[in-house]
Structures are given as C-alpha cells and as structure tokens.
C-alpha cells in the first residue's frame, strides 16, 4: 500500500504537469480528472475514506463533468495534445523543474519516508466524527457556506442572462 501511495503521489504531480503545460482544454480536463482520481486514492490510503469519497463524488462527479462539458465552448479544429510542439517543451520543462525540486529536497540523503499508514483501529472514524462536529458546533460556518452557494447561484444566473439585462452589458 505504501508503494501504491507513492505511485498515486507521483501521478498527482504528473497530472498537474499535464494540466499546467498548456494543452488543448480537453486534455487539460483529462489531466485534472487523473489528478483528482489519484488524489482520492491518496486520501483513502491515508485513512480518510469519507473525504476521499467526497472528492470522488463531488469533485470528479460534479465539477469536472461541468468542466468537460464546457470544453465544447473551447473547441478548436486541431487540439494540441501533450506531444505536440510547444506543449511537449512545456511538459519536459515542468518535469525538469519537479526533478530539480526533488534533487533539492532529497539529493544526497534519504529523505523522510512514511513507514506505514495503518496505526490503530478506531471505533469512531476520525473524519466522519469531524463531520458531525461540523453539523453541531460548526453550524455557523455551514450557514455561511449555504449562503455563499445561494449567492453564487444568483451570480451565475445574472452572468449568463444575456447582454440586454443582467450583469453583463454592452457599453
């Protein structure tokens, strides 16, 4: 499991390299989906089953699907993959930067490796118990979050209303 965690962490960084290296938005969304999936694996491997599930369901299932649909707005006739032209240069440059950072932090000595992740068995899972805390003593923040989401709904409605009425006007 420790090696799986290392593989997941490596895939997280490589997925973000795939997002940051300026490919066509389809492929950037694919890289972000990969990063989200392996991020879920990282969280589950560290014992946070609920946050991992939430990342998988809400982030990958909700938000990234919307992003993948919005890639239709950025359609181009010849989308650039990671192997094409300048994108390949950026990928290699970012991977080189990550390698330099690895050498900077771990070059010469062994670094600090996590031995194992399975320490004890608890009757109450820590992350699920924390969620109950959010509903009891964190109720104020929950109300703030709900208010922000409601406000964001109206912001989106006003932004996409059109040119004649709403927040976006032709001057």
């Amino acid at each position: 499991m420790t090696y799986f965690l290392d593989l997941f962490l490596l895939s997280l960084v490589v997925g973000l390299v795939g997002v940051a290296s300026n490919p066509a938005p389809y492929f950037a969304a694919l890289g972000l989906a990969v990063a989200g999936g392996v991020g879920c694996g990282v969280l589950v491997g560290h014992g946070g089953s609920l946050v991992g599930l939430m990342l998988f369901l809400i982030y990958l299932g909700g938000m990234l699907v919307v992003f993948a649909y919005s890639a239709a707005l950025a359609a181009e006739p010849f989308p650039e993959t990671w192997g094409a032209g300048s994108v390949k240069v950026y990928v290699l440059m970012y991977l080189f930067g990550v390698g330099v950072a690895v050498w900077w932090f771990w070059g010469g000595h062994g670094g600090y490796w996590v031995i194992d992740e399975f320490k004890e068995f608890f009757m109450v899972r820590g992350d699920i118990g924390g969620i109950s805390l959010m509903y009891s003593v964190g109720g104020g923040m929950l109300v703030v979050c709900a208010w922000v989401l409601l406000l964001c709904l109206f912001v989106i409605l006003e932004l996409t209303r059109g040119l004649s009425r709403g927040a976006l006007r032709a001057v």
Partner: peptide, 22 residues
Amino acid sequence: TAFSAAPILLLAFSACEAGAGL
C-alpha cells in the same frame, strides 16, 4: 478531528469559484 470540516468548506467555496468562472 475538529479540522475535518475545513476541506469540505473549502470544496463548497471551490464549487462557487468554479461556477462563477464557468
């Protein structure tokens, strides 16, 4: 355990940011 709500609240704000950006 008490910190467990923070990623969830961050995810809610992140959903707002993604919605406004899209």
